[in-house]
Amino acid sequence: MKDDALDPELKAMLQAAAAATGGPSIRELPIPMARAAYRERYLARGLRPPEREVAMTEQVLALPDRELPARLYRPASMPEGKAAPLVIYFHGGGFVVGDPAAYDHQSRWIADRLGVAVLVPDYRLAPEHPFPAAVDDAWDVFQAVADAPDRWGADPTRIALAGDSAGGCLTLVTALRAAGERAGPQPAACLSLYPVTDYTDRCGEVWPSITAFGKGYFLDQVMLDWFADLYFLRNEDALAPQASPLRWPSVAGLPPVVVVTAGYDPLRDQGDAMAQRLAGAGGVVEHVQLSDMIHNFPGYAGLSAGAATAFAQVVDRLGVHLQRR
Rank of each mutant, 00 (worst) to 15 (best):
residue 144 A to N: 03
residue 2 K to A: 09
residue 54 V to T: 08
residue 104 D to V: 01
residue 199 Y to E: 04
residue 46 G to L: 04
residue 102 A to R: 03
residue 234 R to E: 12
residue 111 A to V: 03
residue 244 S to V: 01
residue 70 A to Y: 02
residue 39 R to M: 11
residue 267 L to P: 12
residue 324 R to S: 15
residue 34 A to C: 07
residue 25 S to K: 13
residue 324 R to E: 13
residue 51 E to K: 10
residue 1 M to V: 12
residue 169 C to Y: 12
residue 313 Q to I: 01
residue 156 P to F: 01
residue 127 P to R: 10
residue 225 D to V: 02
residue 227 F to V: 04
residue 312 A to S: 13
residue 140 D to R: 14
residue 132 P to R: 11
residue 143 Q to T: 15
residue 257 V to Q: 07
residue 18 A to Y: 00
residue 22 G to C: 11
residue 126 A to I: 05
residue 225 D to P: 03
residue 1 M to K: 13
residue 126 A to M: 07
residue 271 G to I: 05
residue 110 I to N: 07
residue 284 V to F: 09
residue 95 F to M: 08
residue 45 R to L: 13
residue 158 R to K: 09
residue 38 Y to N: 14
residue 286 E to G: 12
residue 213 F to R: 06
residue 316 D to V: 07
residue 128 E to G: 09
residue 21 T to H: 13
residue 167 G to N: 10
residue 150 D to L: 09
residue 262 A to G: 08
residue 44 A to N: 10
residue 93 G to S: 06
residue 58 E to T: 07
residue 308 A to L: 05
residue 25 S to V: 02
residue 195 P to Q: 08
residue 189 A to D: 03
residue 24 P to G: 06
residue 284 V to S: 15
residue 207 W to A: 15
residue 82 K to M: 07
residue 75 P to E: 00
residue 302 G to T: 01
residue 225 D to W: 10
residue 225 D to L: 09
residue 234 R to F: 01
residue 69 P to H: 00
residue 21 T to L: 06
residue 229 D to V: 02
residue 255 P to S: 08
residue 141 V to W: 03
residue 236 E to M: 01
residue 119 L to A: 09
residue 114 L to T: 06
residue 86 L to K: 04
residue 259 V to K: 02
residue 174 T to Q: 10
residue 260 V to I: 01
residue 284 V to D: 15
residue 310 A to M: 10
residue 133 A to K: 07
residue 294 I to A: 11
residue 120 V to L: 06
residue 230 L to S: 12
residue 52 R to K: 13
residue 91 H to T: 13
residue 25 S to L: 06
residue 249 P to C: 13
residue 236 E to Q: 01
residue 165 S to E: 09
residue 86 L to A: 08
residue 67 E to W: 01
residue 9 E to C: 06
residue 263 G to M: 10
residue 268 R to Q: 14
residue 29 L to E: 07
residue 61 L to E: 03
residue 163 G to I: 06
residue 40 E to H: 12
residue 130 P to M: 12
residue 284 V to T: 15
residue 83 A to R: 13
residue 79 P to H: 02
residue 230 L to K: 14
residue 243 A to I: 03
residue 81 G to A: 06
residue 308 A to N: 02
residue 22 G to T: 09
residue 165 S to Q: 04
residue 174 T to S: 11
residue 101 A to I: 13
residue 290 L to H: 10
residue 153 G to R: 12
residue 136 D to V: 09
residue 28 E to F: 01
residue 103 Y to M: 04
residue 221 Q to K: 05
residue 235 N to A: 15
residue 270 Q to I: 09
residue 95 F to P: 07
residue 76 A to H: 02
residue 122 D to S: 14
residue 158 R to Q: 12
residue 1 M to Y: 10
residue 247 R to N: 08
residue 285 V to D: 11
residue 192 S to H: 00
residue 188 A to C: 07
residue 213 F to A: 03
residue 306 G to F: 04
residue 117 A to D: 00
residue 294 I to Y: 00
residue 315 V to Q: 03
residue 24 P to C: 00
residue 99 D to F: 00
residue 2 K to S: 13
residue 112 D to I: 02
residue 294 I to D: 07
residue 224 L to E: 05
residue 299 G to K: 12
residue 81 G to S: 09
residue 171 T to W: 10
residue 67 E to M: 05
residue 40 E to G: 11
